[in-house]
Simulated assay, not measured.
Amino acid sequence: MQAPKGFLLLEDGTLFSGRLVGPTSPTVAEVVFTTNMTGYQEVFTDPSYRGQIVVMTAPQIGNYGINAEDPESAQPQIAGVVVRELSPTYSNWRATGGLREWLERAAVPVLTEVDTRRLTRHLRTVGVMKGVIGEGETPSGAALAALDACPSMEGLDLATVVSTREIYTWGPSDAPYHIVAYDYGIKRNILRLFEAHGCRVTVVPSDTPAERLLAMDPDGVFLSNGPGDPAAVAYAPATIREIASRQIPMFGICLGHQLLGLSFGGHTVKMPYGHRGGNQPVKDLATGQVLITSQNPGFAVAGSGEGVEGAPELAVTHLNLNDRTVEGLRHRTLPVFGVQYHPEAAPGPHDAVPLFDQFLTALRNRRG
């Protein structure tokens, strides 16, 4: 049976037609695109994509199904998916089910048979914007009203929404190093890599006070990735400064990196269409090495190769070679650093995995 007709309407009035799989009630969210050729299950379960409709630029999605090992969280986090073709079958020795059925169980709508090349080019030209997915050939009054009421991503604190509310641990209790991780939307593969590097991780809610964290006596502190506007996570900077002042090594990824910039006087800006995909070139300014990285931020720390705007205590360590945005920073006197990209990327690329070793070196140096 053929899926009913559906549409994606962007806030600038541009309409894209397709077939709708899953819920038929209007779904509104910011519409973004990602260039990942594989790893759709990791993308859809990444909390950093919370509240977004994701356009997949790869022409066919779902051909290797889904499995129980690859998710980055317990459930799909996206608001909706737009694809050129949703594969009706799947084949992979690790597969435990089909993508279509998995998304339907999670009540995530999928708009298929869309000219995703045209859509991606439009978003890349005009910039990401709000959109609504619905059933039919043209938007109903309910769809238009829902789109009009959709909040902007700017000013939206989603980190608090996706964060754990209960403290939990990951890794063996007798691991040589103890990391406390702030969960702003943490990915499971970050925890897997910390465990592989000989760490036990205590994951705490995003609003955990500094004194409670310090009482856990960590060897290091990790600031996770997450969704939404970093400037809206207003409770984080004071906590981060208090912990950093104790000379405890600190490492931030994506949103965690942006919060480090904010904590020491910088500010963030919303990028026109973000960096989403597995092919972002990043230059290490110290070595000249170019890393191919996986990313998904919609915001960036304002600055250039000369430094972070308003934050003289921070040095810029990495730049994006496409748009020259700040991709890495470090504190000039404290053992604190962060990167915009994802060294734990699953699937790859894995060029930046050695950053975990860099963090572990800081832990060993602190112990003396």
Results as ranks from 00 to 15, higher is better:
L15I: 07
A143V: 07
T268Q: 07
P26Q: 05
H350P: 00
E42V: 02
R94S: 09
T57W: 01
A181R: 03
G136K: 05
S263H: 11
L103I: 12
T268V: 15
S206G: 01
L144Y: 10
D12Y: 06
C254T: 13
M37W: 13
G13T: 06
L10P: 08
T96D: 00
Q295C: 12
P343N: 10
L262F: 13
P354A: 13
A215F: 03
N279L: 13
M37E: 14
L123T: 01
G171N: 04
A196P: 06
G338C: 04
E85S: 11
D174L: 01
S206I: 02
D148E: 14
E306K: 14
G131A: 02
G220I: 06
P205D: 01
Y49C: 08
G65A: 02
S140T: 15
R165E: 04
V269C: 14
N92T: 05
P172D: 14
L158A: 02
F194P: 01
A3V: 07
D284Q: 08
L156D: 13
L119S: 06
V83R: 09
E313D: 14
S87Q: 02
R212Q: 10
V162E: 06
R105K: 12
Y341A: 00
A315G: 08
E309G: 08
A79S: 15
R84M: 12
Y49M: 08
D174I: 01
G18S: 12
D219M: 04
F299Q: 06
G266E: 08
T293I: 07
Q258L: 11
A146P: 07
A79W: 05
I167Q: 13
D46E: 08
G131T: 03
R100N: 06
I243A: 06
V203F: 00
I53F: 02
A234D: 00
I253N: 04
F264V: 08
L213T: 04
A311W: 02
K130Q: 09
S48A: 15
L291H: 14
L99N: 06
N279M: 14
G97Q: 13
V301S: 06
D229M: 05
Q289S: 10
T239Q: 07
I190T: 13
V233C: 13
G141F: 04
L111Q: 07
T27H: 04
P76E: 09
N365K: 10
L223E: 03
N92M: 04
Y40T: 05
